[in-house]
């Protein structure tokens, strides 16, 4: 038994619920018997990995789902030994760069070379090449990406790369030019509702009407995984009762805190408020909420409550400070300055 997210994950491209065009394209790709390097990007919870796995299944058949974890050993130039767990089947392997830390360049080089230099032994294999999936490819360091680009060309005979990432902005241009870019957009709310309905029916969830599902979908940030997890949570604690429209949807505490910040910002515009807000910011940051997420959420919460003529300057300010956040390292300065800026806007 497992989580619903896992249990009801579509097992092949034919069963995928939305973005049929991508499935069709993937099916077509698999049918040609060859595969370009792929760069699949899209927000989290959109179904990138699910589709890629579907593609692999089309390419190699069901045996690609027999996965195991192998640990590879690497020796850094400074003679330190590293161990990295790699998920692999007979036809593909998956790596996550954040597991490798600072040595990702080395790992990428050695691992790919190793894989590329051994030919496919299995004569029954449908394809001559192996697939290497790199999760979170945007967290690869520049060095590692640079190391990747020549390898991609040199060993095309034996390996194909599939890079999974949230956005292409951190992928260097040479790699982008060597890959086929596939965008998996976040599902629309209607898509999410459809999926939720299907799952609810399979799990025999008592539903009053689809309004609940719509509510869940609208709270999920168009993240299907989040929506399914929410549904499961609701179901677990609703027990024998039916899941109704009025069932409160659990929101993360940090979102509520940001809501509070927004309210306080608008209601009282004094330095004392700033001081109070600062401590909240500190807490949020210490809980690993990314500062850019805080800023974004705060802006979204502010937009409905500020007068219409202030919305453009507000967004412009948010953009400015977001830029500064990205450039710098002392986030708290910029978050506070944004609040001050909002206060100034409101005062004027």
């Amino acid at each position: 038994m497992s989580l619903w997210v896992d249990k009801h994950r579509p097992k092949s491209l034919d069963h995928v619920d939305y973005h049929q065009d991508i499935s069709e394209r993937f099916s077509a790709l698999a049918a040609t018997g060859d595969l370009p390097h792929l760069l699949v990007y899209g927000p989290s919870g959109a179904g990138k990995k699910t589709r890629v796995m579907g593609l692999l299944k089309k390419l190699y058949g069901p045996s690609v789902e027999k996965i195991s974890t192998k640990s590879h050993k690497f020796v850094t130039p400074s003679k330190r030994e590293l161990e990295l767990g790699v998920i692999c089947s007979a036809y593909h392997l998956e790596v996550t760069p954040s597991d490798m830390g600072n040595n990702d360049r080395l790992v990428i080089q050695q691992l790919l070379k190793e894989t590329a230099e051994t030919q496919q032994v299995d004569l029954n294999a449908k394809q001559r090449f192996k697939v290497v999936i790199i999760n979170e490819a945007d967290s690869l360091s520049r060095d590692a990406q640079a190391a990747l680009r020549r390898t991609m060309e040199k060993y095309t005979k034996n390996i194909r790369l599939i890079l999974l990432t949230n956005s292409t902005s951190n992928i260097i241009a040479p790699i982008r030019s060597r890959t086929l870019l596939v965008r998996v957009a976040a599902p629309t709310e209607q898509d999410i509702v459809n999926v939720l309905e299907k799952v609810a029916a399979k799990e025999h969830v008592d539903l009053e009407n689809t309004k609940t599902l719509e509510k869940i979908a609208s709270h999920s940030d168009r993240n299907l995984r989040k929506a399914l997890l929410t549904l499961e949570t609701l179901y677990t604690f609703a027990g024998s009762k039916t899941v109704s429209e009025n069932t409160p949807i659990p929101t993360p505490d940090w979102e509520m805190v940001i809501g509070r910040i927004a309210r306080e910002l608008v209601s009282s515009r004094t330095p004392a408020t700033l001081l109070a807000i600062r401590s909240l910011f500190y807490e949020l940051l210490s809980h690993c909420i990314p500062p850019s997420t805080i800023l974004k959420e705060l802006t979204y919460r502010l937009i409905p409550v500020v007068p219409a003529n202030l919305r453009v300057p507000l967004i412009s300010a948010a953009a400015t400070y977001e830029h500064r956040l990205k450039l710098g390292a002392k986030y708290i300065f910029h978050l506070e300055a944004f609040c001050a800026k909002v206060m100034v806007l409101l005062e004027e």
């Binding site: 896992d6 979170e136 993240n223």
Partner: peptide
Amino acid sequence: LRRYLNKETLLDD
């Protein structure tokens, strides 16, 4: 399950 998850967005969902 982990192979479908992203460490970065783990906290979120």
